[in-house]
Design a protein around this nucleic acid. Structure first.
Length: 127
DNA sequence: CGTATGACCATGC
DNA sequence: GGCATGGCCATAC
């Protein structure tokens, strides 16, 4: 995948609002096949050398276990945005997890919405 | 070409 | 819950 082809991934990551985190898998789901979670990770890693404009909030993409993948720096940036982590460095995806892009935006750009179960939605509504 | 490596993930014990 | 395994797939050498 060429560097240029990462743009759709970056476009989706830019949709994640401050104070929220998305998993690599979630981003991959929204972008749609054939993009996989691994490729999302690859696209984020590429940001170490290339810095597209507008900026990509790479820190908001974490692994499915609720932990950052790149060290304390990333976790610190998220904490500044209001994302909580416990002593073990794990965040609660039910509270701070991204619920997916705005459905209208997704449709307009040819991306997939993120299906959230009713149970998860009610959980989020509690906060 | 084969092999190794990576900002991944679901599953099973 | 941690740990191992297999699957996944692009890149680099």
């Amino acid at each position: 995948m060429s560097e240029r082809a990462y743009e759709p991934i970056y476009a989706v990551v830019r949709q994640i609002p401050p104070g929220r985190v998305a998993t690599y898998g979630q981003v991959a789901t929204v972008v749609g096949p054939p993009v996989t979670a691994q490729q999302v990770g690859e696209a984020m890693a590429a940001l170490r050398e290339h810095h597209p404009q507008p900026p990509v909030p790479w820190q908001r993409v974490i692994n499915a276990q609720g932990r950052v993948s790149t060290g304390q720096q990333q976790q610190q940036l998220l904490q500044q945005e209001g994302v909580h982590f416990n002593a073990r460095g794990v965040t609660d995806l039910h509270r701070f997890g991204w619920t997916g892009p705005d459905p209208a935006w997704a449709a307009a750009h040819g991306f997939r919405p993120l299906s959230t179960s009713p149970a998860e939605k009610s959980q989020l509504d509690l906060f």
